[in-house]
Nucleic acid binder design. Structure first.
Lengths: 178, 178
DNA sequence: CGATATATAGACCAAACAGTCTTTAATTCC
DNA sequence: GGAATTAAAGACTGTTTGGTCTATATATCG
């Protein structure tokens, strides 16, 4: 997964995968089929990790606003400095393959849907607790946040400072939370 | 430019470029050097087009709020349906190359800076005209908008409907404008 | 211990890659 | 119209690509 993450699909060559998996050529093909199948597996793992992490951060037992803060803090962490420069397998894959590869396109689409649903849920709970600013609708705010955090990953490629990213996130949240 | 835009750097092969430029192999190398130089030229053109369009949309002679609406409407148009699926050369390049290719990284970084500066300027004018919601700071709002529109391009890869994108943009602007 | 199954290392393949060079055709210029 | 310049077409090169296959070593098991 790591090698696809760092270099993207097309730029990752078989020797890179052999080095990363410490498998021989034959064993790799016996275990995973071909490069594309292996990539799909890596992408699935990346997506599963991301969704699991989001579930923890936005867990319904904690304060929804704290959950949103934790969720966004995670993005600040992953989009600043060297981590930011490394980028995001999901966003890179969306841009590189989602338009042409249906298997990939479906995965990307359903990930965004899942993230939006999780955020909408947390936002509704925040609204029920009276913590949302006037006129904020959970569903559209969730879509805004999805776009915003994916945009953070793009801008993160220029390795902004953590404090700048954090300030941006705080300023955004400030418009939605009371 | 179009062929790099549709397929990305690594996935674009010499034959694709020959077809697109209608040049022979020799002429293409005589005119542009190598693939990488030609790509940089295409990227520069794409960036110049984007900045020029932004300057028009946010031009200081018109109402700043109208300018922001026009700017965002352009993004709605380019990130919905088939256009959305085609994606954005700049974002795709940021994800594919910005981390490893310094020439590309600089161009991406300065583009984001220029966009942020243009937006910050329009937002300050809106603030001076009393059109910004309470507590909105032009500089941080500009950073938020940069992230948001780049995120729109990512999510646009799943070809959302125009009305959904427009609603999201409206909901965001609603938090900043009065 | 000896036979069998398994996994490794890496030779090997055809195709595609970026880039060069030569040959032929089309222009331009006098 | 004929000489000189330019551009086109595509053959060619060495490398690298994803993928297969064979020979060797390692491990498993009766």
């Amino acid at each position: 997964m790591g090698v696809f993450w760092s270099r993207g699909y097309h730029a990752t060559a078989l020797p890179d995968l052999l080095r990363a998996t410490k498998l021989s050529r034959g064993s790799l093909y016996a275990a995973f089929g071909d490069k594309h199948s292996l990539f799909l597996l890596a992408l699935d793992r990346y997506v599963a990790d991301a969704l699991k992490r989001m579930d923890v951060e936005l867990a319904s037992r904690r304060e929804p606003v704290d959950g949103l803060r934790a969720f966004l803090a995670g993005y600040v962490d992953r989009t600043s400095g060297a981590k930011g420069r490394r980028g995001c397998l999901l966003v890179a894959t969306a841009m590189e393959l989602a338009g042409q590869d249906a298997d990939v396109g479906r995965r990307i689409g359903s990930f965004f849907e899942a993230m939006e649903a999780g955020l909408a849920d947390a936002l509704s709970r925040a609204k029920a607790a009276g913590r949302l600013a006037d006129g904020v609708e959970p569903s559209s705010a969730a879509r805004i946040l999805v776009c915003f955090v994916e945009g953070l990953r793009v801008v993160g490629k220029t390795a902004p400072t953590r404090s700048a990213s954090q300030a941006t996130v705080d300023a955004l949240l400030d418009r939605f939370i009371r």
